[in-house]
Amino acid sequence: MLDDRARMEAAKKEKVEQILAEFQLQEEDLKKVMRRMQKEMDRGLRLETHEEASVKMLPTYVRSTPEGSEVGDFLSLDLGGTNFRVMLVKVGEGEEGQWSVKTKHQMYSIPEDAMTGTAEMLFDYISECISDFLDKHQMKHKKLPLGFTFSFPVRHEDIDKGILLNWTKGFKASGAEGNNVVGLLRDAIKRRGDFEMDVVAMVNDTVATMISCYYEDHQCEVGMIVGTGCNACYMEEMQNVELVEGDEGRMCVNTEWGAFGDSGELDEFLLEYDRLVDESSANPGQQLYEKLIGGKYMGELVRLVLLRLVDENLLFHGEASEQLRTRGAFETRFVSQVESDTGDRKQIYNILSTLGLRPSTTDCDIVRRACESVSTRAAHMCSAGLAGVINRMRESRSEDVMRITVGVDGSVYKLHPSFKERFHASVRRLTPSCEITFIESEEGSGRGAALVSAVACKKACMLGQ
């Protein structure tokens, strides 16, 4: 009897593995994704193909990295998701002549009506938060230079001027797309009239992360975010950046690689679950690469896999709870928690219980395998993109072996128990001629924006502006 049951459990697990095998990517698959990513990057950089390229390769006008001589107080704003952060950054000489960066910050959550109302409502709310922060720190009387981390696709015309191309991540505030974001912020500050600010720089969160990590390690020339969304930036040779005049030196390019796949480059790798996630998203047909990796989508992918296993009578005796059938019910943090389970399955059992399920031991094991399959594919897909960037940098610099540091931020990278190990191992397999160091950014977005502002202020002083 026991043997029969054991055989049935083994057969069930084997069927589960057959279904989950769809998520496995072979090294040849990853090399294919990497080569296609490089081709799209090239198209994004070139003037004649930029418009139709899915990977936009947006110039950021960040050319210099901090040298350690900029000092002063800077205000930093960070808008990239449902939370908005205001930070005071003091850049100065530390002990023994070292450079020191001290920060104080406060988080504000953005109400739904500000995210989806008008641009005026959104930026009025942001300036209200700045006003509140300055009151708390008794700094209303000071006109501070301000660095703005704005983590949406922007076409820069200068370091302090950028046109919002399109909202992502659930934002829909009308009247912002096609307009200068810094102008919208300046107008809102003017409307309030109770404080003055000098907006000197606007950067993407990947750029802010790279600059913040450069402060720790001067070989950091790539910034990457794996959180709600997924994106990367890197220092490109100016001669390859056709959208900006000049051939000397390097400029940081914001790849906006989340949109890779929007022209069909990933079609052969998309599964039924991916198509369902895409169809029910706020932007169907867009940001397809990001939807395979980002935390906004990972939990939902797992939920759809679990429903398939229920329908195949391989999980929960073929019956799903009402909660499990509800879109968004299986949160991405559950994926991390399930994979963090120590082996007694308590954590998995508790999560499934909150979803109205009474799982068996085998159910718990199957749910864990589903989570591992989805998150491992995410790590491997992400590795193909980064390997594409790094191999490109090595080739354009004609280096036999390139040493490089990548600064990384984002909740999936930082909080998932195995993502970074799987990701690092896969990147290294795909970049055999590179020695890569990964560092995690601390308060990256805010500190990085302030350091970019410090560079901009120093330049302005040198130019006598």
Score class of each variant (00 low, 15 high):
Phe195Cys: 03
Gly446Ser: 12
Leu270Glu: 05
Val226Ser: 04
Leu30Phe: 07
Lys172Glu: 05
Gln347Ala: 10
Leu430Met: 06
Thr60Asp: 00
Lys346Tyr: 13
Val335Gly: 02
Gly328Val: 04
Ile436Cys: 12
Cys461Ser: 15
Val86Gly: 02
Val427Gly: 03
Leu276His: 10
Ala11Arg: 14
Arg429Leu: 15
Leu315Val: 10
Leu288Gln: 07
Glu322Pro: 08
Arg36Trp: 02
Ala449Asn: 15
Gly410Asn: 07
Pro417Trp: 11
Glu322Val: 09
Glu440Ser: 13
Asn231Cys: 07
Thr149Val: 14
Glu67Asp: 14
Met402Gly: 07
Glu372Ile: 09
Arg191Met: 08
Pro145Gly: 02
Pro153Lys: 08
Val401Glu: 09
Val452Ile: 10
Glu372Tyr: 01
Ile126Thr: 11
Gly264Gln: 12
Ala370Trp: 00
Glu245Cys: 03
Ser433Ala: 10
Met115Tyr: 12
Leu270Arg: 08
Arg377His: 02
His380Ala: 12
Thr118Gly: 13
Met381Thr: 03
Gln18Ile: 11
Val452Gly: 09
Val310Gly: 05
Gln347Ile: 10
Lys31Thr: 13
Ala378Asp: 02
Arg422Asp: 13
Asp363Gly: 02
Arg358Trp: 02
Met121Asp: 11
Lys169Val: 13
Gly193Ser: 06
Met381Arg: 00
Glu93Leu: 14
Ala10Pro: 13
Thr168Cys: 10
Glu245Trp: 03
Cys364Ile: 09
Phe171Ser: 09
Val367Ser: 04
Thr342Pro: 03
Leu301Asp: 04
Ile130Lys: 03
Gln287Cys: 15
Thr228Gln: 12
Asp365Lys: 01
Arg369His: 06
Ala387Gly: 03
Val203His: 00
Ala259Arg: 10
Cys252Arg: 00
Ile159Phe: 12
Ala188Glu: 01
Lys15Met: 07
Val406Met: 02
Leu463Arg: 11
Arg155Ile: 15
Glu70Met: 08
Thr49Gly: 09
Gln337His: 05
Gln38His: 03
Asn231Ser: 05
Pro153His: 07
Ile159Lys: 08
Met202Gln: 04
Gln98Lys: 14
Met34Lys: 01
Ile436His: 10
Gly328Pro: 07
Ala379Ile: 12
Thr49Met: 08
Tyr297Cys: 12
Glu395Phe: 12
Arg394Asp: 06
Thr116Val: 10
Thr228Glu: 05
Glu331Arg: 14
Arg377Trp: 00
Tyr273Arg: 05
Val207Pro: 02
Asp160His: 15
Ser151Leu: 10
Asn180Phe: 09
Thr116Asn: 13
Ile110Glu: 10
Lys56Leu: 12
Thr342Ile: 02
Asp274Trp: 02
Cys434Trp: 04
Phe316Gln: 07
Ser76Pro: 01
Gly295Ala: 14
Val302Asn: 08
Leu324Asp: 00
Ile211His: 00
Leu292Val: 13
Ile351Gly: 02
Ile390Met: 12
Glu120Ala: 05
Val207Met: 10
Arg85Phe: 09
Ala449Asp: 10
Ala282Gly: 09
Arg392Met: 09
Thr255Met: 15
Glu216Pro: 01
Lys90Asp: 03
Val182Trp: 14
Met224Val: 15
Lys291Gln: 13
Glu248Asn: 07
Tyr349Asp: 05
Asn313Tyr: 06
Tyr234Thr: 06
Gly343Cys: 02
Arg63Glu: 00
Lys39Gln: 05
Asp42Pro: 10
Val55Asp: 01
Arg250Trp: 11
Pro284Lys: 15
Ile189Pro: 01
Thr228Ser: 06
Val181Lys: 11
Leu77Arg: 00
Phe419Tyr: 06
Gly385Glu: 12
Ser433Tyr: 13
Arg303Thr: 03
Glu237Cys: 07
Ser426Thr: 11
Glu221His: 05
Gly162Ile: 11
Ser64Tyr: 12
Gly294Tyr: 09
Asp73Phe: 01
Ala119Thr: 09
Ala6Val: 12
Ala10Ile: 15
Gly388Met: 07
Ile404Tyr: 05
Gln323Glu: 11
Asp42Phe: 09
Gln337Val: 12
Arg345Ile: 08
Glu112Leu: 10
Thr405His: 03
Arg447Asp: 15
Thr65His: 06
Arg36Asn: 02
Gly147Cys: 07
Met298Lys: 05
Gly170Lys: 07
Ile163Asn: 07
Asn179Arg: 05
Asn254His: 10
Leu415Val: 09
Gly246His: 01
Leu146Val: 14
Val401Gln: 08
Pro59Phe: 00
Phe195Ser: 06
Glu236Ala: 02
Asp278Ile: 03
Met121Arg: 12
Lys169Ile: 11
Pro145Lys: 00
Ala53Thr: 10
Lys13His: 14
Trp99Met: 03
Pro432Trp: 15
Ala379Met: 08
Glu339Val: 01
Val277Cys: 09
Ile159Trp: 13
Met210Trp: 00
Arg429Glu: 11
Met37Asn: 00
Thr437Leu: 12
Ser281Cys: 11
Gly72Phe: 00
His424Arg: 12
Ile159Pro: 13
Met87Phe: 08
Ser321Asn: 12
Glu95His: 12
Glu435Met: 13
Arg369Lys: 01
Asp278Trp: 10
Gln106Phe: 10
Leu77Val: 07
Leu45Asp: 03
Gly229Tyr: 03
Ser360Phe: 03
Met197Asn: 03
Gln323Met: 10
Asn254Ala: 02
Ser109Tyr: 07
Phe171Val: 12
Ser321Val: 09
Leu386Phe: 11
Gly294Thr: 15
Glu52Thr: 14
Arg63Ser: 00
Arg46Glu: 15
Leu184His: 14
Arg392Gln: 13
Arg327Asp: 09
Arg155Met: 11
Glu157Thr: 15
Val207Tyr: 00
Val199Lys: 03
Arg358Cys: 09
Gln239Arg: 04
Ile211Tyr: 00
Pro66Met: 13
Val200Leu: 05
Val199Glu: 05
Tyr289Val: 15
Leu352Ile: 06
Leu270Phe: 10
Arg369Thr: 06
Ser340Phe: 03
Tyr273Leu: 11
Val452Leu: 13
Phe123Glu: 04
Glu95Arg: 10
Cys461Phe: 15
Glu9Ile: 15
Phe260Trp: 05
Thr103His: 04
Thr118Pro: 11
His380Met: 13
Gly261Gln: 04
Asp124Glu: 06
Lys12Phe: 13
Asp78Leu: 10
Val406Pro: 00
Leu292Phe: 15
His141Tyr: 07
Gln38Pro: 10
Pro66Gln: 15
Gly223Asp: 00
Gly448Leu: 09
Arg85Leu: 10
Leu357Ser: 07
Leu144Asn: 05
Ala456His: 03
Cys457Pro: 13
Arg377Asn: 00
Arg35Ile: 15
Lys136His: 06
Tyr349Gln: 04
Lys143Ile: 00
Pro432His: 15
Lys169Asp: 10
His424Tyr: 14
Met238Cys: 02
Glu67Gln: 12
Ala114Asp: 09
Gln24Arg: 15
His380Cys: 08
His156Pro: 13
Arg447Phe: 13
Thr206Cys: 10
Arg46Ser: 14
Pro284Thr: 15
Gly261Val: 02
Ser396Asn: 15
Glu331Lys: 13
Ala21Arg: 13
Val338Tyr: 01
Ala329Thr: 08
Glu442Val: 05
Gly97Trp: 06
Glu52Met: 10
Lys420Tyr: 14
Asn166Met: 11
Gly223Ile: 00
Val226Phe: 06
Ala11Met: 15
Leu352Glu: 02
Arg429Cys: 12
Ala425Trp: 13
Arg308Tyr: 05
Val154Met: 15
Ala454Asp: 12
Gln323Leu: 10
Ala454Phe: 13
Arg7Cys: 14
Leu352Tyr: 02
Ser321Tyr: 13
Gln138Lys: 12
Val86Glu: 06
Arg250Ser: 06
Ser321Arg: 12
Ser340Tyr: 05
Cys252Trp: 00
Ile159Val: 13
Tyr215Arg: 00
Gln286Asn: 15
Thr60Arg: 00
Glu256Met: 09
Phe330His: 06
Ser321Glu: 10
Ser373Pro: 01
Glu421Lys: 08
Tyr125Trp: 12
Ser375Thr: 03
Val71Tyr: 00
Asp113Phe: 08
Gly246Cys: 12
Arg429Ala: 15
Arg397Ser: 07
Gly162Asn: 06
Arg250Ile: 14
Gly162Arg: 11
Arg327Phe: 14
Ala188Trp: 03
Glu312Arg: 06
Thr228Phe: 04
Ser353Pro: 01
Pro66Val: 06
Cys220Leu: 02
Gly193His: 15
Glu272Trp: 07
Arg308Thr: 05
Ser360Asn: 05
Thr118Cys: 15
Val338Trp: 00
Met115Ala: 13
